[in-house]
Design a protein around this nucleic acid. Structure first.
Lengths: 164, 164
DNA sequence: GGTTTTAGGTTGCAACTAGAAACTTAAACT
DNA sequence: AGTTTAAGTTTCTAGTTGCAACCTAAAACC
């Protein structure tokens, strides 16, 4: 764990504060979860989450503004509004699952049910973890920070796979 | 994405609300990040985060209470207190990195620096994602929910790897 | 045209969050 | 013994969050 150290946020360009700015509020992840479960309409979010109307209204607006949800009128019933995940919102699924798995593992006593599985073979997904470029599982001790410049020089020969 | 649906939290035993209960507050992830970067003492958190003393005090207490940090007096200087990550706290690293990578990818304009790398070969880590039991990358469309009972019956022959 | 439905704004109130500054306590240092 | 340091706690203030209940606007339905 000693190796895992970086300058704090004033210096580093760190994505965490930006992520928290968009998703750090109390209901944001629960709304996202509902959206992943197919909830699309205001009243359905309201019922699913037990949240106050004005808070929901405010959060949905913020999530739309952040580009995580998109807001559009239904074609068939134009007073109805659909909130749908954008690609940017979909891309939060690993983070949400990682949080959820952590909650299940450490906070929730019972094994979770239902279990999220691979649709192709029906097997449970692997716990979300940190993996090397070649797929090996990494522990916190296996990690280190490198300057981008240094890194790009080092891999000048082999093509650098897109990271982050 | 249609396949990815589950009963909402009243019915399902979902770990997400539990995770958010512990980590959902505004400064929690930033404190965790500092802890991963080796910050251990009250005054150092204070300086690193620019947070008010009373809020920091409150958050540290909560994180200790949640078992994410442990609080102990230094052996050499017993007025000093060290806050250190517990295994439970360490286990939040994938979730934090996933959030951070998302923030870097979607919110932060510039490529992040420094880059988190595998210490063994110096290559950048793979973006955190969802993988099947055999390591294949999965997209949201590849996911489905299965009842635990059904699943355990189905894999009665092959040993079910520990999940979550 | 009147009613219903959907989405969401407004108001009022209680609780919580956040910050600055001063105070406290215990240990260490001299 | 007196000072300094680390880690808080307390007090006061302002702002935000959250809920309930009611109100509005627009579209659809009859």
């Amino acid at each position: 764990m000693e190796k895992l150290r970086e300058p704090l946020c004033e210096i580093a360009q760190c994505g965490l504060p930006f992520a928290l700015e968009a998703m750090g509020e109390r209901w944001s992840f629960m709304i996202l979860r509902a959206a992943f479960n197919g909830v699309r309409h205001f009243e359905d979010f309201l019922e699913a989450l037990g949240i106050a109307r004005n808070i929901l209204s405010n959060r949905l607006s913020r999530l739309v503004e952040a580009g995580i949800l998109k807001r559009e009128h239904c074609a068939d019933d134009r007073r109805r509004i659909e909130y749908r995940l954008t690609p940017k919102g979909m891309d939060l699924l690993p983070a949400m699952l990682a949080l959820r798995q952590w909650g299940e593992k450490w906070q929730l006593g019972v094994p979770a049910n239902p279990v999220l599985c691979d649709a192709r073979d029906g097997m449970p997904i692997r716990p979300i973890g940190i993996t090397a470029h070649d797929g090996r599982a990494l522990s916190p001790d296996d990690l280190t920070w490198r300057e981008r410049a240094e890194l790009e020089a080092a891999v000048a020969f082999e093509p650098l796979r897109k990271v982050l």
